[in-house]
Amino acid sequence: MPRYEYRCRSCGDTFEVSRPMAQSSDPASCPAGHDDTVKLLSAVAVGGTQGSSGPAAPSGGGGCCGGGCCS
């Protein structure tokens, strides 16, 4: 089930709520009971393998600054 991050405008607390995607736009109350919250935009990494720092840099040239096109 997806988790959504919210911030309470009243107390400044940041918290997460697990709910179905169909309820992603529903309002959420903070743990202290305040209703003035805003859903935060989260950056999600997709793909790759665990422990990977991203795609490997190409080797053996190619591209303008790594290959033979710049003299």
Rank of each mutant, 00 (worst) to 15 (best):
A28M: 01
T14V: 12
S52E: 10
S25A: 11
G33L: 00
A43C: 11
S25N: 08
A32I: 00
G60I: 01
G47N: 12
R19I: 06
G33R: 03
P31W: 02
A28F: 07
P27I: 08
L41Q: 02
A22E: 07
Q23W: 13
G67P: 00
R19Y: 05
G60F: 10
G60L: 09
S59L: 02
V44Y: 12
G63D: 03
L41A: 12
A45C: 09
G62C: 03
P58K: 13
T49L: 07
D26Y: 11
A43M: 14
T14H: 14
T37P: 01
K39T: 00
A32V: 02
S53N: 13
S59E: 07
G48M: 15
G60T: 00
G67R: 08
A56H: 02
C65A: 10
G66M: 06
C30Y: 10
P31Y: 05
C64H: 00
P31V: 01
A57R: 14
P31F: 05
V17E: 13
T49Y: 02
H34Q: 02
A22L: 03
Q23G: 06
P55N: 15
G66P: 01
T14F: 14
D35I: 09
G62M: 05
C69Q: 13
G62E: 02
T37N: 11
V38W: 04
C70A: 08
K39H: 10
A32C: 04
E16M: 12
G68S: 14
R19M: 05
A22K: 09
D26L: 14
C64P: 00
G54T: 11
R19W: 05
Q50V: 10
P55Y: 14
A28R: 02
G33Q: 03
G66D: 03
K39A: 11
S25R: 08
G54C: 08
P27W: 10
V17D: 09
C30P: 00
D13A: 15
E16N: 14
S25M: 01
S24P: 01
D35E: 08
T49I: 02
V17S: 05
T37E: 01
G62A: 05
P58Y: 03
H34I: 06
S42E: 12
A22F: 04
P27H: 06
M21H: 08
A32T: 01
T14A: 13
T14R: 13
S18M: 14
L40A: 06
Q23I: 04
S24D: 01
L41S: 07
V38T: 13
R19N: 07
D36W: 06
H34G: 02
R19Q: 08
A57W: 08
A56R: 10
S59A: 12
D35P: 00
G68R: 11
D13G: 04
E16D: 14
G67D: 01
C65T: 02
T49E: 13
P58G: 09
V38F: 04
C65K: 09
V38R: 11
H34N: 09
Q23A: 15
C70W: 05
A43W: 12
S53E: 13
A28H: 02
G61Q: 07
G48S: 15
D35G: 08
S42N: 11
G47V: 12
S25F: 06
G68K: 10
